[in-house]
Write a protein that binds this DNA or RNA. Structure first.
Length: 582
RNA sequence: UGGGGAGUCGCCAAGCUGGUCUAAGGCAGCGGAUUUUGAUUCCGCCAUUCGAGGGUUCGAAUCCUUCCUCCCCAGCCA
């Protein structure tokens, strides 16, 4: 009978430049013939495979060397959201090409964070799709040898400093390395010896042979392999040469059948290189022996698309700055509720639903932008307003005595668990002569416009009676009141007296004390550490406050991560790490 | 001074195969209504203007052109 609310009818446009690209590709059937057998592989290995059931494939490719933060949440929602919306799959790929920096510990935490945000990396065909760049080391090595054979790569024996000197500058072209014209056979021999561990770190490096005069510095013969005698978190000591990001990333995408490879803006001028590598590998090649060899990668090749990374005011997301906060102990660790990490956000009470709403609300584009922190907070409140049951908590308790209320008498007042959801039921609050109220709800000499408790004023005890303040006893720090027995909430005549103020309370006898932590933004300025300025002076000294609150009895059994709205205060979460209910 | 990007309301962001744009939507803000949370919900208001100038056109945020501003790039990091 009722029409949908007009507000819901015209949902905001979710259109963005990435969706347009995908929709155009889908329309053109660009990726429709890709083959897939559930296992990343070369053109040869996929030759007889069936058609890929996933319409598109995206990937979230974190480097397992730190904790995920708000920025990653945006990327996760984007990649997984697109895959979901277009009948595709999104792979979780750990980009672990650098043995010096990566650890297994982070792999677990990243996996958990993605799951927590509500996403799964299983695809329409039922494949698990959890991959590691290190899974492709063998492919990468074989492909690199092939590029050497085809004259597209060479072993350089310059030191890092010498190489830098020859690279040129932003405005001057680079110069060719003296080793650039090494014959193919010699390159092959040296590369194999690099692989075999015959050289020390840094002695040689495999470079793509592109163009030292390119105005794009990434094309000035970029490194593909470096020698690192280091144990890798997954491959152990099996390798002593490791591929660079530029070499490994595009190939990984291609092996995994990725269609749309999304990354941030700083990789824009890496795209020509991304494409160069994949195109060289995908093209057919006729060797000096006259034998034609087919391309190594399935086509069409993945397409890299760049979007603007997330910036949030009052928040710092650079790894360097986050490490500084932890190491210098300005926070209590990576999962401190004030940290912009996902583990921190979770303890803070931020929710997956809130993050997904946030990602949707901020959109995705190519313009650098700063999102106001309040938008993130609003998204969280928007979800919690729906999802969190209401409870009463007095965070800064002040004693109140109802002098005309009989000693020993108790009454049960009913309060709804959610004002707009009667189906959530009601709970009982016990009213007695002595109560705790919020200190800021009383004023001996009220400022203008103050309509809560002050001598001579009447106010409603939420869900209970109307009381009138008759004084304040300084020595016992107690507010004195009388109540009007005819004004009990929910009874006939309760509305006979109109009052503007409505304050919350808990019974002195029935409530319990508990530590409550109040968190505010970590920084007091919108752009902490802007430019190269110091970060520390920008810290908000009041970002964390501990109070001993009086909580209503129903809060006693709160389970870790259970969330509530403390009426008239805001949202609170039982800490999953540290919540000792008393 | 090389190359690659970006500039639409306080903050995001649609639109950019030219007319339906005196520019969508969200957030914030401002009014007002409901309300036992100074909350929520609801209703209304909120860019004659699209970085600036010039041009093409009957008509431009959308096309051309000049200029301005901001961001990224010289790791054997990602």
């Amino acid at each position: 009978m009722s029409a949908p609310s007009p507000r819901k009818q015209h949902e905001a446009s979710h259109s963005n430049f990435i969706r347009q690209i995908i929709e155009a590709d889908l329309m053109a059937g660009k990726y429709a013939r890709r083959k897939w057998n559930g296992k990343p592989g070369s053109a040869f290995s996929l030759h007889n495979a069936p058609t890929d059931p996933a319409k598109i494939r995206t990937r979230f490719p974190p480097e397992p060397n730190g904790y995920l933060h708000y920025g990653h949440a945006k990327a996760i929602c984007l990649n997984f959201g697109l895959a979901r919306d277009y009948g595709g799959g999104c792979h979780l790929r750990f980009d672990d090409t650098n043995p010096a920096k990566e650890e297994t510990e982070y792999v677990d935490s990243i996996r958990e964070a993605v799951k927590w945000l509500g996403f799964s990396w299983e695809d329409p065909g039922g494949n698990r799709n959890e991959y590691y760049a290190s899974d492709y080391f063998e492919y990468l090595y074989q492909f690199a040898e092939e590029l050497v054979r085809r004259g597209h790569a060479y072993v350089d024996s310059l030191s890092a400093e010498q190489m830098r000197a020859l690279r040129g500058t932003l405005t001057e072209p680079g110069k060719n390395s003296p080793y650039r014209e090494r014959p193919v056979e010699e390159n092959l021999k040296l590369f194999r010896e690099m692989h075999l561990g015959r050289f020390a770190d840094g002695e040689h490096v495999l470079r793509a042979k592109i163009d030292m005069a390119s105005p794009n510095i990434n094309l000035r013969d970029p490194a593909m392999y470096r020698i690192r005698h280091a144990a890798h978190h997954r491959t152990g000591d099996h390798w002593c040469i490791y591929p660079t990001y530029d070499w490994a990333h595009g190939v990984s995408d291609a092996l995994e059948n990725i269609t749309h490879s999304l990354c941030t803006l700083e990789f824009e001028d890496h795209r020509p290189l991304y494409e160069w590598f994949n195109e060289r590998l995908a093209e057919d090649w006729t060797g000096y022996d006259g034998v034609k060899r087919p391309g190594l990668l399935q086509q069409p090749l993945p397409r890299q698309i760049e979007f603007a990374r997330l910036n949030v005011t009052y928040v710092v997301l650079s790894k360097r700055k986050l490490i500084q906060l932890v190491e210098e102990r300005h926070v209590d660790g990576w999962d401190d509720p004030r940290m912009p990490t996902l583990v921190g956000a979770r303890r803070r009470g931020f929710t997956p639903e809130g993050f997904r709403l946030f990602a949707e609300r901020i959109g995705v584009a190519k313009a650098d932008s700063w999102i106001e922190f309040s938008i993130l907070e609003d998204c969280m409140r928007e979800h919690l307003n729906e999802a969190a049951p209401r409870r009463v908590a007095v965070l800064d308790p002040l004693k109140l005595v109802i002098e005309n209320y009989p000693e020993g008498k108790e009454e049960e007042c009913e309060a709804p668990n959610h004002p707009h959801k009667p189906e959530w039921g009601r709970r009982k609050l016990r009213l007695s002569r002595e109560l705790w109220i919020e200190r800021e709800d009383f004023s001996e000499s009220p400022p203008k416009g103050y309509f809560r408790l002050f001598p001579g004023n009447r106010v409603r005890l939420r869900y209970g009676y109307i009381v009138e303040c008759i004084g304040y006893d300084k020595t016992t720090d107690t507010v004195r009141c009388t109540y009007d027995p005819d004004t009990r909430s929910g009874t006939p005549g309760a509305e006979k007296v109109k009052v503007k103020g409505n304050i919350h309370w808990v019974s002195a006898k029935d409530s319990f004390a508990a530590e409550v932590r109040l968190y505010d933004r970590l920084f007091k300025v919108p752009h902490p550490g802007a430019g190269d300025s110091e970060l520390v002076p920008d810290l908000n000294p009041d970002s964390k406050k501990l109070v001993t609150a009086q909580l209503e009895a129903a809060l006693k059994g709160a389970r870790p991560e259970e969330q509530f709205q403390f009426e008239r205060h805001g949202y609170f979460t039982a800490d999953r790490v540290d919540s000792t209910a008393r």
